[in-house]
Design a protein around this nucleic acid. Sequence first.
DNA 1: ATAATAAGTGAACGAGAGGTCACTTAAGTT
DNA 2: AACTTAAGTGACCTCTCGTTCACTTATTAT
Lengths: 200, 200
Amino acid sequence: MAKDTKERILTAALEMFSHKGYEGTNIRELSASLGLVKSGIYKHFESKEAIWNALLDRMIAYYGERFGSAEHLPPVPDSPEDFVSMTMRMVNLTIRDEQIVMTRKVLTLEQYRDERARDLATKHFLTGLTEMFTHILAGMMDKGLIRRDDPAMLAFAYTAPISALIHLCDREPERTEDAIAKIEAFSRHFITVYGVKHDV
Amino acid sequence: MAKDTKERILTAALEMFSHKGYEGTNIRELSASLGLVKSGIYKHFESKEAIWNALLDRMIAYYGERFGSAEHLPPVPDSPEDFVSMTMRMVNLTIRDEQIVMTRKVLTLEQYRDERARDLATKHFLTGLTEMFTHILAGMMDKGLIRRDDPAMLAFAYTAPISALIHLCDREPERTEDAIAKIEAFSRHFITVYGVKHDV
DNA sequence: ATAATAAGTGAACGAGAGGTCACTTAAGTT
DNA sequence: AACTTAAGTGACCTCTCGTTCACTTATTAT
């Protein structure tokens, strides 16, 4: 309970900021959740704002590692069913992983106040997923699994509805199962609409 | 500068809450923006929370009036071009009307804290638009403008990407023009994909 | 005109915020 | 074992918050 305190503070801060927002979080509670008294935190960070900035650094770095490099792109699916199940695997991860959920929430809450949060929010909510699926859908076009079209447009048309339902899960967790079912239904709808015709 | 003070307080509160959030807003600033001293506000509302609740009442009532009744549904378009231009009219209104923008922002910021904000957020961001376009797309199917399919699924597939770009405008206003162009491009893409084939 | 009520003022209050500091305790180095 | 540094404590500081209250000024009704 010594050297990793800095990391533990950041983890607790993510949780608290994501529940109550930056302004709604106070240092005493944050410290108490770690078993410290509030002045103890100032041995690790010089201010509340410094905690916020370090947390954002960590979120940005994590995003870069996780989604920034080409090597982390999932393989191009081999069939419509494969496409749906890959989607569902990604969706389940992103909805169930508490760390990711809290990251989305905190970005949602602070996007108008902090420029870096704003930029990261756009990546998380819009451009990141779209870029990823632009690559995937382009690969599927090459394999002849879906009709040739603008892959960026298709990726946007595919990911934005999914993203909307992920937001719904963050907002109303009790609707998670419905939302997941709806995502799967949408995924199948999409692959039917854009898939090549099976002239039986 | 007397009887309408209550309304003016709510208007100023919407602006301030949407910029800084509920916690980030303080009564002194709020009063000052109306040319009052802070204690003056307490002649009209008994607490900060009462202002928040009254504002939510107003937002809920406004939403009900504006989008809740069937009579406010736009007419079913007569052509693909009509569909696109109706969409663009609605989008421009919703992006340019400061009142609506601020409402979305405040719902975004307070959705995890307040249950009524949460419910209204879901209507604003997801179900409201979807229901509206379910009706419109069903009408267009009847007119033979688009192929027959599940209108609710199509409405969701159509409105969620538009909603995502509206959120982008709220977050990064400098990208508004790009976003609007992208919405129009998406709208045309959609009507092409789902439109009935023109066998020339 | 006058009485009654509503709207607005300014000083004050208690609570809780973020932050500092002298101090104690634990860990690591030589 | 002695010394140095890091980690954690508790009392205290200042500031700002939301709120109250006795008071003055407008407004309205009769």
